[in-house]
Amino acid sequence: MSSSAVECEGLSKTYRVGFLGRKVQALKPIDFVVHPGEVFGLIGPNGAGKSTTIKLLLNLVLPTSGKARLFGRDVNEPSSRESLGYVPEAPVPYEHLSGEEYLFLQASLAGLGGAASKQEVARVLERVEMKRHAALRIRQYSKGMTQRVMLAGALIGHPKLVVLDEPTSGLDPLGRRLVRDLILELRHEGTAVLFCTHIMSDVEMLCDRVALLIGGAIHKCGKVSELVSDTRTHEVVVDNATREQVLALVQVDDALRIEVVAQRVMLHVGETRLQDVLRQLLNGGLTVSRIQPERIPLEETFMAALRTSNQHGGDLE
């Protein structure tokens, strides 16, 4: 009996499309593990196979090869999903139900009944701040409201694993914040979270580990810190100065570039030289008006990986 929340070995998927059953390889054999209580991010460009991976884990689509297990149980056993919450990509719930009725249905499917389900539904509605709209039909919900109710459904019964396919899509900034807080809270409670997203800052903020999927293969997998290149650069803005004034103080090299825009000088400084450059500028009597990291490092890694691999997902064979 394995103790991993998610475990897949050589898991692959080739879809057959059209009348002739042409093959589309969505996922090459992949292996990865999600430990209990861990937040695991799946990232990758459109069509990389993220949703396919998730659907394989929930036995919604059947693997072409390989095996997947949730908490040590093969995914083709319904009992593997006993402690699972799931929100699909762009979910379409039963629109004739109200948010509350939908959650009661989910609670009963999760095996809760009577008072327990009442309590759970109230709790999760409160958690996603949807209590006010609970009695409204889902048909009348906005996209973000629907997404919130779906999230609430995934929280029912305190699952040990929550799988979210692009949970923040369609949400306003407050909603995004809510999802981030929710994920952190789940992690705090010891719930494993597997989610996929395109938002790198979310990944950096939330994930213990990430897998970068490109063209249906895992390009990189590891701790966020391991995936991030340490060549972080910062943008340093000096107001009311000329290029010459700045050049007199600092030396231009690989780790420093200079740009002039209107009355401002912008320096792009590598992590290693940042402190020195700041000291030199300030000691030279210039005013530094802004310092900010340029590009999120993970995004940089992501882009670099994309450039180096010429693979695309879903090639027709």
């Binding site: 929930l58 919604l60 319904p78 009992s79 799931y86 699909p88 979910p91 379409v92 039963y94």
Partner: peptide
């Protein structure tokens, strides 16, 4: 088509049920 099936089958429920 509407993918509502995802929300049911992702619960511990077999396809036969």
């Amino acid at each position: 088509e509407r993918r509502t099936v995802f929300l049911i089958v992702s619960r511990p429920i077999s396809r036969s049920s």
